[in-house]
């Protein structure tokens, strides 16, 4: 398949999917059904942009195609934070902090986590993939175990609140949250787009980037901060997306047949949004809410990714 055709065909396809999602079976009910669906669509667009952008940028910085923020423990940290909030403050924490306070707190937590990652792991440019992978997996495991430990200590009612955080869903965001999430993503997008050529150079590795006049530590810090904001927005908007980032990034590389971020980032966003729409459409219209978006996304992505690997024999 020609990558240029895919790059251009994906946008009309995306619009068609979005229209189908909003209109099919709506009875053109402009008072309730369509506005509700538009809200979900907005959540999917924002979430898709966040997942694709954060995963691809993270992989470029760490110089590999396996690690994503989700694997490096960002989402596990988010869940631990939620569990801790409920343990210490009870479900009253929801009322106390408010939904927006919670989002803000998550964002600060993830920025702190990014800073720590940069300080101890990614700052020196000697990124050993296996070490990072091991570290990420162990950390995720530890954080998840902590979360489970806390879950055992809270009441069943609070437990169900906590469980609500652990699934991907497009229904939890209200208009206001979408609005400021959108503003944040837009802000990240502006900074990100301005420094896009530098991201291409960062992907060449620390030594080459420095030799080409890119202040490596500074830009890695900047990008990790941008990634932290994106992950915080997406997890507070949709919940954890687990392995979706890897799928989206690798499918993007295979289809774009280029590592230039000018091509991969927009394509990745389109792929992620399309996946969300298809999954949500199936959940609503076909499975009648008997399955979840997370399960479908992993199923579809996993199957497609495997097919891609087998067909292109490793050069995916």
């Amino acid at each position: 398949m020609n990558s240029a055709i895919i790059r251009h065909a994906i946008w009309p396809l995306l619009i068609a999917l979005a229209l189908a999602f909003v209109l099919v079976g709506s009875g053109l009910d402009l008072a309730y059904v369509i506005p509700r669906r538009l809200l979900r669509l907005a959540a999917m667009v924002l979430g898709g942009v966040c997942v694709a952008w954060s995963s691809i940028a993270f992989q470029s910085i760490t110089g590999n195609r396996i690690l994503t923020p989700a694997i490096m423990g960002y989402e596990a940290l988010y869940l631990l934070l939620q569990a801790l909030l409920i343990l210490t403050l009870g479900s009253a924490s929801l009322a106390l902090l408010g939904h927006h306070g919670n989002v803000l707190l998550s964002m600060l937590c993830m920025l702190g986590y990014s800073w720590a990652l940069h300080r101890w792991l990614l700052g020196n440019g000697k990124n050993n993939l296996y070490f990072l992978l091991l570290f990420g997996l162990v950390l995720t495991l530890v954080l998840t175990t902590f979360t489970q430990f806390i879950q055992l200590r809270i009441s069943p009612g609070e437990f169900s609140v906590l469980q609500g955080f652990a699934y991907t869903s497009f229904n939890r965001a209200d208009g206001q949250q979408l609005l400021y999430s959108g503003a944040l993503v837009l802000g990240v997008g502006v900074v990100g787009f301005k420094t896009l050529p530098s991201l291409d150079v960062l992907a060449l590795g620390r030594d080459q980037a420095l030799s080409l006049g890119v202040d490596y530590p500074r830009y890695v810090r900047l990008y990790l901060a941008l990634i932290a904001i994106l992950v915080a927005v997406s997890t507070s908007l949709l919940g954890p997306t687990a392995f979706m980032g890897i799928f989206v990034a690798n499918i993007t590389y295979a289809l774009a047949r280029s590592s230039r971020h000018r091509l991969t980032l927009p394509l990745g966003c389109a792929i992620a949004i399309s996946l969300f729409i298809v999954a949500q459409f199936l959940v609503e219209q076909v499975f009648n809410y008997k399955t979840t978006v997370g399960i479908l996304v992993n199923l579809v992505c996993g199957a497609y990714f495997l097919a891609l690997m087998i067909r292109s024999r490793g050069d995916a």
């Binding site: 291409d200 150079v201 992907a203 080459q208 080409l212």
Partner: peptide, 16 residues
Amino acid sequence: SLRLTLEELVAFGRFP
């Protein structure tokens, strides 16, 4: 592991 053409790689030399 990056997917770049030779020309794209050489173009990085102009980045400074």
